[in-house]
Design a protein around this nucleic acid. Structure first.
Lengths: 390, 390
DNA sequence: CATGTTAGCTTTGCGGCGAAACCAATCTGG
DNA sequence: CCAGATTGGTTTCGCCGCAAAGCTAACATG
């Protein structure tokens, strides 16, 4: 199939923006008739005919079976993207492991794997990525692009002289030009992004943020992550901004975080704080997962710690909703367990911080799965391919 | 001049978006050459020639004297809008007074007046507006549009069935269709907007927010107002959102606001709270202005109240900057005096809430002037005229 | 004072998009 | 079974914007 399936390669770069917007809409919201597309994209039906014809001819779009939706009128011939003929690689790098997924054009995971990072040097990591890619990409579909996300306590990539440089202290990286290195290793265009930003993009196109113009994403794990989508676009965050959020003061004079702030979000929510607080009361060292397990089993100390954290999270979400005026806040990361266990405490604290108006914020708790972070990388690669920028 | 000056009337509606963007750019950033415009607006120089020629012919744009900016090359012939030939009426309605200004196309105030509202019925207010307009608009320039802002504790106008309805409890208004009433009275297109949103637009086009894609506006007065501009657009706020901000909890267990929340922004910053706190300590009733005056003169009680409020404001600004990720926060309203008197306390609280990084937020304190609120109305009228949509 | 250089502006030809007229496919009702 | 209604899709034509080439008005230099 490979040859026939790749007729669209090469044509893609020359497509006008309107054509790209059609593909984007079909990817995000599924098969639609030309008329439906013309309405949502504010294009004339004439333009739709003209734009779609070459893409159908090239095999980039496929025309579905005739559907007879309306009571009256001519039946529709829905269009869809040939999602299965495209493959994207998504990678997430942490201090000790690399997570990899291969997806199709709709970010559906085709194959996934994770393994320890052997050699931490940038070029070795690129080689490892190439090897992972070869192992994962059996069968159909041509690799179109790759997205790498660096996370944890990594700093955002900085724009310097037109080249994106990556700082990832936990990998020992400083001003690494990862993009060209990775592109040489993989042979396809690569995108490098902050991991929380990538996860926000993923939720925007393929998750609970689909169709929403505005929402916030809060991730809870070793640290606290934050991303904001407003007017359908990610709000650009500087390196400094990303760190600020976790240290937002929720309770002046409250418990202390490792940086010495009292009552900040990290002092309640970060993995370190949860372990330290519970460990202090239990008089032994405990892991994060253990605290969660004990809390679920009804241990009073751990439940107390978790409830306190959930209340802090509720207040934090309240602040986010009030100031950014989003109606939806998505929670993700290992720490969401906390929000599930003490759901009521979270909801109560949120409502108290929203003038006692219940239901004014939609809080979505996402399942925690390492593959989601890698999928975020695939999503930014898909976006880069579709929109043709960044 | 009137006849010659109004050649552009009628032509305006038919202008393409690109032409409007040229006028907008010239209004906001002043006279510029065609080449400069082509660069900032991402239009070709060819398009600029074609688009500007009819507008210059119609008298909407004027060509300035030849300027010889660069060392080499042909001198520029800067274009500018004929700002003086347009007049806009801006109105701000409060519980007891109406503030009115007449401005030119650049929102420069040509005439201003305020007076008590006689009859509070919508139609009587419209008649009063008409009378004010007649008194203010002597001499040159044709009235093009008007903008009415409703504020104080007024609720945002709601979109119902395509018609904007205004709720203004303090005027006894409920679901009033102010726009058509006002248009009938004044004879020009009218825009009705929330006052804080209008003030944000004013700062965006003509104030310290000029050229900024993102900033926040916080107003301090009887209540706390808030508006957010992200990606060059106002973030839409629901009725509920507008009220939430003032009751953001800064210090759980702190002083109580009239709604019964402890430690919320209103409990520190609202006129009522400042007067109540100072009055309680002084054992007599005091006005807001009196507290400010006494604080300036060194009265320990009033200075304490003001400093505490400034600290709360600093923390509030810190929250806004961290969550909305803006780099600029503009302060306006009667209460800015507080920020001026206790500037250092504000700055310290802000820095403490920003991980001790000084200077990460630009706080702009605007002069308080009732005319600014009315000017906000003129600005939304100007925007409606220029962009051709609400 | 010719010639080159630089930069602003205009003209010309081409392609993308919308508006509207037109064609196609279905159902309803005489 | 045919006219009308309803909706989906195509064709035609004109406008708008870009790219590129050309023109204009200054300065620089030998």
């Amino acid at each position: 199939m490979a040859v026939g399936a790749r007729r669209w390669v090469g044509m893609w770069d020359a497509l006008p923006d309107a054509a790209r917007s059609i593909v984007k809409e079909l990817i995000i919201h599924g098969p639609q008739s030309r008329t439906a597309l013309s309405r949502t994209l504010h294009l004339s039906t004439g333009s739709l005919t003209r734009l779609t014809k070459p893409m159908v001819d090239a095999g980039l779009l496929v025309e579905g079976d005739v559907v007879h939706d309306p009571v009256n009128g001519r039946p529709t011939r829905p269009l869809d993207v040939a999602a299965g003929e495209h493959r994207f690689l998504g990678l997430k790098l942490t201090a000790d492991r690399v997570y990899a997924v291969v997806t199709d054009l709709r970010a559906e995971i085709v194959a996934a794997r994770d393994e320890p990072i052997g050699d931490h040097s940038p070029s070795a990591v690129c080689d490892q990525a190439k090897r992972l890619l070869d192992e994962l990409s059996g069968g159909a579909g041509a690799l179109v692009g790759a997205g790498v996300t660096v996370g944890g306590n990594a700093r955002a990539s900085a724009q310097v002289g037109g080249e994106r440089l990556v700082d990832a202290p936990y990998l020992g990286w400083w001003q690494v030009e990862l993009k060209p290195l990775m592109e040489r290793a993989l042979g396809v265009p690569c995108v490098v992004k902050n991991d929380v930003a990538a996860l926000a993009h993923q939720h925007h196109w393929f998750g609970p943020g689909r169709g929403l113009r505005d929402f916030a994403l809060v991730t809870i794990g070793a640290g606290i992550g934050y991303a904001l989508i407003v007017h359908d676009h990610l709000v650009a965050a500087t390196e400094a901004d990303l760190g600020m959020f976790g240290h937002l003061v929720l309770q002046p004079g409250g418990p202390m975080c490792p940086e010495g702030h009292r009552g900040c979000a990290a002092a309640y929510l970060s993995g370190w704080s949860v372990e330290a607080t519970a460990g202090h009361a239990l008089r032994r060292t405990v892991t994060y997962d253990e605290v969660m397990r004990l809390a679920t089993e009804g241990d009073r100390v751990c439940l107390g710690v978790v409830r306190e954290a959930a209340q802090a999270l509720g207040r934090l979400i309240g602040h986010v909703a009030t100031i950014s005026m989003v109606k939806t806040v998505i929670l993700a990361g290992e720490g969401v367990e906390l929000a599930r266990i003490a759901k009521d405490d979270l909801a109560r604290a949120l409502t108290e911080n929203r003038r006692d108006v219940p239901g004014s914020v939609d809080v979505v708790i996402e399942a925690d799965d390492f593959r989601e972070w890698a999928r975020g990388g695939a999503v930014v690669a898909i976006q880069s391919f579709v929109t043709g920028s960044d």
